[in-house]
Design a binder for these strands. Structure first.
Length: 511
DNA sequence: CGGGTTTGACCAGCGC
DNA sequence: GCGCTGGTCAAACCCG
């Protein structure tokens, strides 16, 4: 019975994960995704009921037993034969067993609930940390009601995204939202408040991981579209008003990766609009702008490293103002994640007075670097380091299911990787609040990443995409929604860990 | 012919 | 103010 209950519980989780993967890997319309979400919730409930069916089944049995027991008792009363007494003893044994099983079931459910609560608490703590780190900058917005509404009318949480949003337009939009009539489940408390209840936490989780789905979300809503409407297109120049905003607008993320290709495939459509010979680099720098929508402010620069021309440096700037396919969403999220981390650095600057021009992401100095040097603070994701040959290929604390191994297809769809990573979401969430994930182990992990990259240049794009999918909101979020990602270096740590985990999966698949 | 690329010109910011 | 540099524009060109 214990095993049965545990099995069902495990099966529930597995099913949930599969549903989520299904949902995430769905590249169709947001409507379909929403339906998937509904399916997911329904299946989840069914599975929960199945878990309860442990009771239910027993209850049936119990009922039968009880009734038969009752009947037997009556019969015993009537008849009282030794054979019936023996049967009655068996019934009593079964009843005792049933009670024991019920207690066990309750205990398991209690454990499950406790684990769930622990996870939520961790998430809450993480959110409060994020809010704390961003509190100064957003204090004014909180005062002005920017954080009043945690949830929009369509069940979309605004707060976590709000503090991750980069542009004033988005903030203004949030303010506008805050003036809209309160919606169901609305709270006047900031989402990151430590007093956040579990419901709010669940919402937070959904916000950070849209793939987790808002179970109350209206049905015929395209995720990308709805989120996009919350953050309408904003011209970068028009959006830039203050110096801080300009900083955010100019915040960049640079990805260094070894690749023979002229450009990494990130799922977006780009149009080259210029090429320059930059000083100090014989290799020309190419300028691209996103052509997936008219007026999209996103640009990227592609240039080979002067020192090592096998290294391709791709620098992204800006936020997309349009829905993106999942694959593109992942990479696009990088820009906001970078900007958010830079914002975090700005906060440090405000607190400490001097901004560290080059912030090494904790324990991942070989992977990610934040450079806040003027005029464009940049997060550099360095994926070019080669691992020591003695490094073990797999030493990750959490296993990947077989379905999460990098596909054999050479392009390694980022979404697939992201999905695989999302299967370990809770673990990553824990990592997000664990800046202390340190030292040699992770350094080795970082090196493992490099091994994967070295093994296959195509992995680079997929890897970066997967990372940003995780920190950017689960891969189904639109790029403008990408600001759901954390603004803390802890997030970068998680991203790094995610990276290494992905690499592990990749390497295992290579084996 | 439409869309993308190339490339010289133009503009703005910055340092001297 | 001038020159340098990065970034962008836009006409010419290329290609399917």
């Amino acid at each position: 019975m214990d095993l049965s209950a545990t099995f069902n519980s495990t099966k529930l989780n597995e099913k949930s994960s599969h549903c989520e993967v299904d949902f995430l890997s769905d590249k169709k319309s947001g409507f379909v995704r929403t339906r998937r979400l509904e399916d997911f919730e329904v299946k989840k409930k069914i599975k929960e009921e199945e878990l309860l069916d442990v009771n239910t089944g027993l209850r049936l049995l119990t009922g039968n037993n009880n009734s038969s027991s009752h009947q037997s008792t009556l019969e015993d009363d009537d008849m009282g034969t030794p054979g019936n007494r023996k049967g009655n003893n068996e019934v009593n044994v079964l009843q005792a067993e049933l009670e024991r099983v019920n207690e066990e079931n309750l205990r398991l459910r209690s454990m499950l609930e406790q684990i769930s609560n622990n996870y939520k608490s961790l998430h809450n703590y993480f959110n409060s940390l994020v809010l704390t780190s961003n509190g100064d900058q957003h204090m004014e917005q909180e005062k002005t009601g920017g954080l009043k509404n945690q949830e929009t009318g369509d069940g979309f949480m605004m707060v976590p995204r709000q503090f991750m949003d980069l542009g004033p337009a988005a903030v203004a939009e949030t303010d506008n939202r805050s003036q809209s009539p309160p919606s169901e489940g609305q709270s006047s408390e900031p989402s990151g408040s430590p007093s956040h209840n579990s419901q709010g936490l669940t919402k937070d989780y959904r916000t950070i991981h849209p793939s987790f789905a808002d179970d109350r979300k209206s049905g015929d809503h395209d995720w990308n579209e709805s989120a996009f409407k919350l953050h309408p297109a904003k011209n970068g120049d028009q959006a830039a008003a203050g110096a801080g905003e300009a900083t955010m607008r100019k915040a960049r993320v640079s990805v260094r990766a070894r690749s023979e290709a002229a450009m990494i495939i990130d799922g977006c459509q780009w149009r080259k609009y210029g090429q320059k010979l930059a000083k100090g680099n014989p290799c020309p720098r190419a300028y691209y702008r996103c052509t997936m929508a008219a007026g999209c402010p996103v640009r990227k620069q592609v240039q080979r490293c002067a020192e090592d021309r096998s290294i391709l440096i791709t620098t992204y700037e800006g936020n997309h103002n349009h829905p993106l396919p999942p694959a593109a969403t992942a990479m696009a999220s990088t820009t906001s994640a970078a900007a958010c981390m830079l914002l975090s650095g700005s906060m440090s600057s405000a607190d400490g007075g001097i901004m560290n021009p080059n912030i090494l992401i904790p324990s991942s100095s070989t992977v990610a670097t934040i450079s806040a040097s003027a005029p464009f603070p940049t997060v550099t994701l360095d994926l070019t380091h080669t691992p020591p040959p003695h490094l073990p290929r797999s030493h990750f604390p959490f296993p990947f299911p077989a379905t999460t191994a990098a596909p054999a297809h050479p392009s390694y769809p980022p979404q697939a990787l992201a999905n695989s990573l999302l299967n370990n979401q809770s673990i990553f969430s824990g990592l997000q609040i664990s800046p202390g994930l340190e030292a040699a182990g992770q350094l080795s992990l970082a090196n493992t990443v490099s091994a994967a990259i070295t093994a296959d240049p195509n992995f680079t794009a997929a890897l970066a995409a997967a990372i940003t999918t995780i920190i950017g909101g689960g891969g189904t979020a639109p790029s403008n929604n990408q600001n759901q990602s954390s603004c803390t270096t802890a997030t970068a740590t998680a991203a790094t860990t995610t990276t290494t985990t992905t690499a592990s999966s990749f390497l295992q698949s290579q084996d």
